[in-house]
Computed example of a mutant assay.
Amino acid sequence: MNGYSIIADNYRHLMEQGKISKEIAEKEIRIYEFLATCDETDKCIMVDSSAFNDIIKAYLRMAVMNAEISEKSQDKVLSQLRWIFDEKQAKEVLRNG
């Protein structure tokens, strides 16, 4: 059992206690059970698929804005992120990051 399995179990308990709806719980359980089966390579494949690029960019954009980095610097950082997404694989980024 790993952390994702524990989270899935927690959602089961919340659903059984009536604290969250069955619809919400089932979706969360499905996702966390899937993640429980993934190793680091699987997660890298998911990131390399670009499925999460917009979310990662939004997090980074928020981080640089909250850090009060100049707009010019923000643009440079976001440009580098786009380039890295296009040119590097997740395993390489993890290894060198």
Rank of each mutant, 00 (worst) to 15 (best):
M1W: 01
M1I: 09
M1N: 09
N2Y: 01
Y4K: 05
S5I: 01
I7H: 02
I7A: 10
A8F: 04
A8Y: 00
D9E: 12
D9K: 02
N10Q: 07
N10I: 01
Y11T: 10
Y11C: 09
Y11A: 11
R12L: 00
R12I: 09
M15W: 06
M15T: 02
E16T: 06
E16Q: 09
E16N: 09
Q17Y: 00
Q17H: 03
Q17M: 05
G18P: 05
K19H: 12
K19D: 14
I20M: 04
I20G: 04
I20H: 03
S21G: 13
S21A: 10
K22I: 15
E23C: 04
E23W: 07
I24A: 05
A25Y: 00
A25Q: 04
E26K: 14
E28L: 09
I29G: 03
I31R: 04
Y32M: 03
E33P: 00
E33V: 02
F34Q: 10
F34R: 11
F34H: 09
F34I: 01
F34D: 05
L35P: 04
A36D: 12
A36W: 07
D39Y: 09
E40W: 05
E40R: 11
T41R: 05
T41Q: 10
D42P: 00
D42L: 00
K43R: 08
C44E: 03
C44L: 07
C44Q: 01
C44N: 13
I45N: 05
I45M: 08
M46N: 03
M46D: 06
A51T: 06
A51Q: 07
F52E: 03
F52Y: 14
N53V: 01
D54Q: 12
D54H: 10
D54A: 12
I55R: 12
I55D: 12
I56L: 12
K57H: 06
K57A: 08
K57L: 14
A58I: 02
Y59P: 01
L60C: 14
R61V: 01
M62W: 04
V64G: 04
M65Q: 10
M65D: 02
E68S: 13
E68F: 13
E68H: 14
I69D: 05
S70L: 07
K72E: 13
K72P: 01
S73T: 15
S73G: 05
D75H: 14
D75N: 15
K76I: 15
S79K: 15
S79G: 14
Q80G: 11
L81Y: 08
L81A: 14
R82C: 00
W83N: 11
W83V: 13
I84K: 14
I84Q: 09
I84W: 04
I84H: 03
D86C: 04
E87A: 08
K88N: 08
K88P: 01
K88D: 05
Q89W: 04
Q89S: 09
A90V: 02
K91T: 14
E92W: 10
E92V: 15
L94Q: 11
R95N: 15
R95Y: 13
N96H: 07
N96Y: 08
